[in-house]
């Protein structure tokens, strides 16, 4: 115990370092004037109210939700079934998914943006579709992790075999037994993916640009024009992320609890 003082210092530093920027930005969103004094001169709801009256912010928010939500939905429809089939029936191919996950990590947005533009910019495909597709691929690591963990924690293989032994068809066993059991883990993975995509800037900015103004692009514009509005955007963003993180941790806890029973 006595030797930990030194390490504690690092721990406190870590917490301060992670929270100070967040707290300062949130405070800025409610500050009347904060240019010459160390702490704000007064507090106001004016900036938040202004932000929500700005129709271009509301529209940008809608676009972000549509784009990120659409990508997550497509991943649930097309990637999750593939992961199910491979993990449950063709486990020897699972290493290929793992390889794909590593490759997705290895090629971040700035590299993928070059490829998307070279491949699709000159053949008349709407580039927003290219970004949507790239979003679906870029959340593969989170979707795979979420699906894999929940399949493992409910012993999916035995569960399906048991259901089929008791007379359920493959489709019934899948939709009535397996899906409800893995749902919390899947949902947590989907929310995590959504929150990652909601903060995405590189692909949308380089490939599509301000023709499809998401919250991140809106924020980038406000950065140079109004600090108060920018901090209000960050405030709204943080509240949304906080809610999503809270739900994710509840879901993960629940699916862990279910595994223990």
């Amino acid at each position: 115990m006595k030797k930990k003082g030194f390490a504690d210092l690092f721990f406190v530093f870590l917490l301060l370092y992670l929270f100070l920027p967040i707290l300062a930005t949130m405070l800025y969103a409610f500050a009347t004037n904060w240019n010459k004094t160390v702490l704000p001169e007064g507090l106001t709801f004016k900036w938040i109210a202004t932000l929500f009256q700005d129709s271009s912010f509301i529209e940008a928010f809608g676009r972000s939700v549509l784009l990120s939500g659409g990508a997550v939905l497509l991943a649930l429809l097309f990637i999750v079934p593939a992961i199910f089939v491979i993990v449950l029936y063709f486990p020897k191919y699972e290493k290929w998914i793992q390889a794909a996950v590593v490759m997705v990590y290895a090629f971040p947005g700035v590299i993928l943006a070059v490829g998307l533009i070279r491949a699709y910019a000159h053949i008349g495909v709407p580039m927003i579709l290219a970004v949507l597709g790239a979003y679906v691929i870029s959340i593969l690591p989170y979707i795979y992790q979420g699906t894999r963990n929940s399949l493992r924690s409910v012993n999916a293989r035995q569960l399906l075999d048991a259901a089929e032994l008791l007379g359920a068809s493959k489709a019934q066993a899948f939709s009535k037994v397996l899906l409800p059991a893995v749902y919390p883990g899947l949902f947590a993975g989907a929310l995590l993916s959504f929150s990652v995509l909601f903060g995405e800037f590189v692909l949308i900015n380089l490939v599509v640009g301000s023709r499809f103004e998401t919250v991140q692009i809106y924020l980038m514009k406000k950065l140079s024009t109004s600090g108060h509005i920018a901090s209000s955007v960050v405030f709204v963003y943080l509240v949304l992320m906080g809610i999503l993180t809270f739900i994710i941790s509840m879901l993960t806890k629940r699916s862990k609890g279910a595994a223990k029973v």
């Binding site: 920027p21 967040i22 300062a24 930005t25 800025y28 960050v234 993180t245």
Partner: peptide
């Protein structure tokens, strides 16, 4: 994990505030 979502443009802005 919550702070890991705090990156990119919002993070840059927070450091401008500080």
């Amino acid at each position: 994990n919550l702070t890991s979502n705090f990156s990119g443009i919002p993070l840059a802005f927070a450091f401008i505030v500080l």
